[in-house]
Amino acid sequence: MVLNRRRGNQAAAPQRARRRRPWSWWLGLAMVLGGLGVLGWAAWQFWGTNWVSQRTHQRIVTEVERQWEADPQALEAVRVPEGEVQALIRIPRFGDDYLVPVLEGTSDGVLASGFGHFTGSAAPGKKGNYALAGHRVTHGEPLRQMPDLRVGDEVIVETRGATYTYRLISGGKDLEVTFRDTWVVDELPTNPESGGVQPEQRKGQRLLTLTTCAELFHTDNRLIAFAELVDTEKRG
C-alpha cells in the first residue's frame, strides 16, 4: 500500500507541472492587456474628451446667454464651475453653429472647456492684443481646422455689451513658432525674424491673436493667426 501511494504521488506531480502556465504565456497576456489599455486611453483622448468638452461648451454657452439676457447691464464676467467667461467666439469659416466660450487663463482645465484668454492681454475690443489659445485636437478641438483660415476671414467676439468683429490679417498656417516665442501675445507682436509674419507695426491697434498646436499629435510648435478689429456693434 505504501508503494502504491508513492507511485500515485509521483504520477500526480508531472500532471500538476503540466498545468502550470509558462512565463511567456503570462508575458503575452500582459502585453495584450497593456495594448488594450493604450487603445482605450487613445480612444478616450481623441473621442471621449471631445464628447465631454463639446457638451461642456454647450452648457457654458447656454448659461452665459441666459445671464446676459437676464442682466444686460452687469459688468462682471459670468461665473461657471470651470471659471470666468467674458466672451463667446464665432468663426464663420468653421460653420454657422460654431460657438465656443472664452474662459480666463490658459490652464488645462480652462482649455478643456473652451478658448483660454491669456491673462494680462487686452480685453475684447480694447487697444492691444486680445490673445486666445485653443486645442487643435482633443478636448473639443475648437481650432482643429486652424490651417483652413484665410486672410480676410472673420473672428466674431460676443460679449455682454457688444459684438466685435475682427478680420484676419494672416492665414491659419502662415506662421509657426515654438512654444517659447511669447512675442506673439505681446501688446504689439513684433516678429524677431526680419520679414516674418506680424501685424502692422503701429501702436494703438486693436488686435486678436489665435494660438494652437502646429500638429494634430504632440508638438512643441504653435500655429499663430493675427486679426484686427474692423467693427463694433453694441448689444441691446
Rank of each mutant, 00 (worst) to 15 (best):
E63I: 12
W26N: 12
A12E: 07
R21D: 07
G105C: 09
L27G: 08
G40W: 01
R6V: 13
R19E: 14
L103T: 01
I89P: 01
G8H: 11
W51P: 00
L29C: 05
R90N: 08
R7Q: 14
W47N: 11
E65T: 09
G83V: 04
E65M: 10
W51T: 14
A87L: 10
R55H: 12
R66A: 06
R7T: 04
V61E: 02
G120P: 03
R16S: 13
R21V: 12
L88N: 01
V64G: 00
R16W: 06
Q45F: 06
V102F: 04
R7D: 05
F46E: 04
E63N: 15
Y98Q: 11
N50L: 06
R5W: 15
G95V: 09
V100R: 05
Y98T: 07
L88I: 06
S113H: 04
G8M: 13
W23A: 07
L33T: 02
F115L: 07
A30T: 10
D108P: 07
M31L: 15
Y98N: 04
I89Q: 00
D71Q: 13
V32P: 01
R16I: 09
R5S: 07
R66Y: 11
L27C: 13
L111Y: 00
S53K: 01
P92E: 11
G95A: 07
G120W: 12
S107Q: 02
N50F: 04
F115V: 04
G83H: 00
L29Q: 10
W44K: 12
L111E: 00
L75H: 05
R18V: 11
W41C: 08
Q86R: 15
A42F: 15
L27S: 12
R90A: 12
E104I: 06
R16K: 06
A42V: 13
H57S: 07
G34I: 10
I60F: 09
P101L: 09
V100Y: 03
W68H: 06
V102I: 05
G34A: 15
R90S: 10
R5I: 04
Q15S: 10
V80I: 11
V32D: 03
L111R: 00
V52Y: 15
F94W: 02
R20Y: 06
V32L: 05
E63C: 12
A112E: 01
A70V: 03
R18P: 01
D96G: 09
G8S: 13
A11P: 02
V85E: 00
S24R: 15
Q10F: 15
Q73W: 14
G8W: 12
I89H: 00
L36P: 01
S107D: 06
V80Q: 02
L29N: 08
G48C: 13
V61A: 05
V32K: 05
